Amino acid sequence: MRDPAAPSLPAPAVSSLADFHPAPGTMASGEEDGTVEEKENNNKKKTKSTLATIWLTSYNIVMTVGWLVLALAMIRFYVQKGSHRGLYRSIARTLKFFQTFALVEVGHCAIGIVKTSVIVTGVQVCSRLFMVWFITNGIRQVQNEESVILFLVVWTVTEITRYSYYTFSLLNHLPYFIKWARYNLFIILYPLGVVGELFTIYAALPFVRRSGLYSMRLPNKYNVSFDYYYCLIIVMLSYIPLFPQLYFHMLRQRRKVLHGEVIVEKDD
Rank of each mutant, 00 (worst) to 15 (best):
V157H: 05
E159M: 11
E159I: 06
I160P: 07
Y163Q: 07
L171T: 07
L171G: 10
N172D: 15
H173V: 13
L174E: 11
L174V: 06
Y176A: 13
F177N: 12
F177H: 14
K179Y: 03
A181Y: 05
R182M: 06
Y183W: 13
N184A: 12
N184R: 12
F186G: 12
F186E: 14
I187M: 07
I188T: 14
I188Q: 09
L189T: 14
L189K: 00
Y190F: 15
L192T: 10
G193V: 07
V194N: 11
V195A: 15
G196A: 08
T200P: 10
I201R: 06
Y202P: 00
A203I: 06
A204G: 13
P206N: 12
F207R: 01
V208G: 14
R209W: 05
S211D: 15
G212I: 03
L213S: 07
S215R: 00
S215A: 05
M216D: 08
M216G: 07
R217V: 02
R217D: 14
R217P: 00
L218K: 00
K221D: 13
V224Y: 11
S225W: 03
F226C: 09
F226E: 07
Y230R: 03
L232M: 15
I233K: 12
M236V: 11
S238Q: 09
S238T: 12
P241V: 08
P241Y: 06
P244W: 04
H249I: 00
L251Q: 06
R252F: 01
Q253M: 08
R254Y: 01
R254F: 01
K256D: 13
V257I: 02
H259M: 08
G260M: 00
G260Y: 02
V262E: 14
I263Q: 02
E265I: 00
